[in-house]
Design a protein around this nucleic acid. Sequence first.
DNA 1: GCGACAG
DNA 2: ATCTTGTCGC
Length: 321
Amino acid sequence: MELNLKTFIPSLDAYHMPYVSEFASFDLPSYFYSLVRQIPVNKVSTYMDLAIALGDTIAARAVGKMLSENPEPDITECFRIIHSDGSVGNYTHPLGTEEKIRRLVACGIKVEDEHVMDFEKLRFTEFKTEFPLKRIAAEQSRMSKEFVSEYPGSDSFGAVDVSYYGNDAVAAFVWREGNEIMARFARSHVTFPYIPTYLSYREGEIMKRAIGNFDGTVLVDGHGIYHPRFCGLACYIGITAGIPTIGVGKSKLKGNISGKYIMIGDRKVAMIHKGRFLSPGNRIDLLDIEKIVGHDDTVLKLTDEAHKAATHFKNTAIKKE
DNA sequence: GCGACAG
DNA sequence: ATCTTGTCGC
């Protein structure tokens, strides 16, 4: 016998459809290196210029980091990227800054006292780009609209954290079973760099693999709606996996402190509890979080267990390889 | 000159 | 988060 779906499912909208990210496996470094290769041989550009071409000035440090990890320095020449004040800046090479200057001079660029002469005239900014970080930020804004504040309730809690050895990451997810603490791990090489406010695209997918099909509320090492686009790591995980999540951050992002709460504009996005910033990720609100940590102070300690598990796995399994 | 800038 | 990457605004 076959079911007539049209009869039994009146509207797909009645179901919660997990949001699918378009950038879950986006290779930002490859895109970035292709931008670097656009700089003409007799020109220079700055870390900030490349960050703008990527789509957000907040990525300036990540630009430096990606250049330092350039896998093909002969094909993607990175010595043309200099500081915004015209000084040549660092060069990840055994010979350091001296080598950067030597290579610039070899291209006919004049350098005096570690500064590029006629810097503004030699500066290249006309990148052909689709501003990927702007697109990702737009996805965060769209995704934030999928946030649901109704808490389904749960008697089980888990916590997830990530530890790194270079760009090799391990995610640890821990939960309680009776008196035991259980752990599940996920490993992978990550390419997306750490960029403030884009943490989801570095850690979201590996964390979801460690969480697996856990049926409960997940504490995430990062913020939830306490985020400039109301879409931090805990939201990304909660909304793309369709599960209740709570963001647990150790440090501030932006926003104003008002008593025990953090405000972004007129929206209350987080509460301060025991030096942590707690914010809704998905399918929960601040009042639920307040009740949970007030009723059971062992729940938050799961985040410490997740941190320990991830660090231990990294030190014992990854570092030795 | 020093802090922000989630991890 | 590690192993050093940059800019802005006060």
